[in-house]
Amino acid sequence: MKHVKAINLRAQALEARAKGELPDIYALQMQLPMSCSTVFDPGWEVDGMFGLAGLCQPMENDLYGCSADCWWPAQVPDELVNYPGWSDQCSAAVRDWQKIKFIQGGP
């Protein structure tokens, strides 16, 4: 899948890293959803080049774009299926981010 590999900026960065510095480790996963982001589609935790400048600024603006559509279901409660109504108490995240609930496992 060479053509896919080329799009996958973060994977490329990782592979380059892996080749140079950590020869035995194929990918550093670290619970990062590696290579999720492309330049115009911000990743949750890191952008295509191991940075954060390519992400939504600030991330609170994009938070419900993630939750409403199960875009990052391992990091953000998805409201489509698993955690409906999660954002109801705080509609404008950038203003009221302290009200956003953290969900620790469980039902």
Binding site: E45, L63, A74, Q75, Y83, F102, G105
Partner: peptide, 16 residues
């Protein structure tokens, strides 16, 4: 060493 300081988690399942 490289350190990425990234955004918080809003969900932490039992095991990932």
């Amino acid at each position: 060493a490289f350190l990425l300081v990234t955004v918080q988690l809003f969900l932490q399942e039992t095991m990932n």
